[in-house]
């Protein structure tokens, strides 16, 4: 699968851009957190597209962002 670039994204409508980023993110997150992949992807899609692109290019950054998202998610879902 070819890397997603800013110019590729720029050609798509905004809604489609998130979809493209989401597909990439989901397939990277799924092997790490199969049960939470959809939620984590949803959280990361709230980030700026340009920042998501950087994450997709940097596995280490993405991994740390995923762990951050998991922590937030678990705290959010934890009963009080």
């Amino acid at each position: 699968q070819e890397p997603l670039t800013a110019s590729m994204l720029a050609k798509a409508p905004p809604q489609e851009q998130k979809q493209m980023l989401g597909e990439r993110l989901y397939h990277l997150i799924y092997p790490l957190h199969p049960s939470l992949a959809g939620k984590i992807t949803g959280m990361l899609l709230e980030i700026d597209n340009s920042e998501v692109l950087l994450l997709l290019e940097s596995p280490a950054s993405l991994r740390s962002k995923i762990e951050e998202a998991v922590t937030v998610l678990q705290a959010h879902q934890a009963p009080e």
């Binding site: 998130k18 397939h27 959809g38 992807t41 949803g42 899609l45 709230e46 959010h76």
Partner: peptide
């Protein structure tokens, strides 16, 4: 205490058009 948005975050499903926060029912 209000019923906080327990459904956050919206969930992404591959192949399904992403609607972002609109995925969450009001």
């Amino acid at each position: 205490s209000n019923g906080s948005s327990i459904s956050w975050p919206p969930e992404f499903h591959p192949g399904v058009p992403w609607k972002g926060l609109q995925n969450i029912d009001p």
